[in-house]
C-alpha cells in the first residue's frame, strides 16, 4: 500500500457509480449586508469506493460543504443526490436512515466527545444504531473489543475512562473504531489529522486506509495539505473561496495543475514528490 496506484478503486473494471452528487450546491451564512458565501454553486460526483480529497486553504468552505453533505446544516441552493436519487432527509426517520450511510470524523477530537460520558457510551451508541441493542452482553463486548483492537486500543482499559483521559491521537483512533462499528457507506473525514501530533498522524492515515479496505467505503477526505491528498486519494477537488477551481484524478491535478491556485498550493509543499513510507513513520 506504499504507492498511490495500489489504492485505485476496486470497481475499476466496471463503470463508476456515483454515490454522492451535488448540483449548484450553495451555502450562504447570515442575512442582509453581512452575508458570507461559504460554498458557491459547486457541482460534483463522488464515486462509490473512491477516496476523494477536497483540498483548500482554511476558510475556503470545506467544512461547510461537508456539513451540508452530512445533513447537519441546510443548503441555501442546489441539490444533493445520494446513490443517484435526490437525497430526502425531511423527517427524523429519514435522517436516521441517511445517517446509517454517512458518518464523520471531525477535525477536533477534543470537542467531538461529550465529556460527561464514559467512552463506552460512544461505542454503545454505535451498536444501538445498528440495531444490536438486544444482543447478549458478551457479544457486544466482543464487537467493541474487536473495534478497539482494530485501532490498536485496548477496550478493557478504556471502558471506564472519560474521553479527556485520552490523548488527541487516541481519541481520533476511537473515532475510527466508531466508524468500524457503524460501517457506513461514506466516511466524511474533515481534516482528521490536523489537530493531532505528527507521530499519530501517519498512524491515523494508515488506519483510515486499512478501514477502507476492510469495509469498502467511500471516503471524502478533507485537507489543506495537497501532498497528503496526493498520497491518499483517487480524485482531488481543489476548493477556493467556496468554488471548485479544479478537479480530476490525483495524478492529473497534481502532476499537471491548471489553476493558479492549485499551482500555488503545490509550490507551498516543498517535497511533494517524495512520498514517505507510512509504515516506517508509524512504527
Amino acid at each position: 500500500m506504499a504507492t498511490n496506484q495500489n489504492q485505485s478503486p476496486k470497481q475499476n473494471s466496471t463503470e463508476p457509480k456515483p454515490c454522492l452528487s451535488g448540483r449548484g450546491l450553495t451555502k450562504v451564512f447570515g442575512v442582509g449586508k453581512v452575508q458570507t458565501v461559504a460554498v458557491d454553486h459547486v457541482d460534483f460526483d463522488f464515486n462509490e469506493g473512491e477516496i476523494i480529497s477536497i483540498v483548500g486553504e482554511s476558510g475556503s468552505g470545506k467544512t461547510t460543504l461537508s456539513k451540508m453533505l452530512l445533513g447537519l446544516i441546510s443548503t441555501t441552493e442546489g441539490t444533493i443526490e445520494y446513490q443517484g436519487k435526490p437525497r430526502d432527509i425531511s423527517t427524523n426517520a429519514k435522517k436516521k436512515e441517511y445517517w446509517k450511510n454517512i458518518q464523520p470524523i471531525f477535525q477536533d477530537p477534543f470537542s467531538s466527545y461529550n465529556i460527561f460520558y464514559k467512552i463506552d457510551a460512544v461505542l454503545d451508541d454505535c451498536l444501538n444504531m445498528r440495531g444490536f441493542k438486544n444482543l447478549p452482553e458478551e457479544q457486544k463486548i466482543q464487537m467493541k473489543t474487536e473495534a478497539c483492537s482494530f485501532v490498536n486500543l485496548k477496550y478493557a482499559e478504556l471502558t471506564n475512562k472519560y474521553p479527556f483521559e485520552l490523548s488527541g491521537g487516541q481519541m481520533q483512533r476511537l473515532m475510527i473504531a466508531r466508524i468500524f462499528l457503524l460501517k457506513p457507506k461514506i466516511l466524511m473525514a474533515d481534516e482528521p489529522t490536523s489537530m493531532i501530533d505528527a507521530c499519530s498522524r501517519a498512524t491515523i492515515l494508515d488506519m483510515l486506509l486499512k478501514l477502507r479496505d476492510e469495509i469498502n467505503m467511500t471516503i471524502i477526505f478533507i485537507t489543506h495539505d495537497i501532498g497528503l491528498a496526493y498520497y491518499i486519494s483517487d480524485k482531488v477537488y481543489i476548493m477556493e473561496h467556496g468554488k471548485f477551481v479544479e478537479s480530476g484524478s490525483a495524478e492529473d491535478v497534481i502532476i499537471n495543475p491548471q489553476a493558479d491556485y492549485t499551482k500555488r498550493l503545490i509550490s507551498d509543499v516543498p517535497k511533494i514528490y517524495e512520498k514517505w513510507d507510512l509504515d516506517t513513520v508509524a512504527n
Binding site: K67, L70, L72, N92, K96, W99, Q103, P104, F106, Q107, D108, S111, S112, Y113, N114, I115, D125, C126, N128, M129
Partner: peptide, 14 residues
C-alpha cells in the same frame, strides 16, 4: 454547533 452535539445527532439521538 459543537462537534459532540453533531455526533450525537448523527448517532440518531432525539
Amino acid at each position: 454547533n459543537r462537534d459532540h452535539v453533531n455526533l450525537s445527532k448523527l448517532s440518531g439521538h432525539s
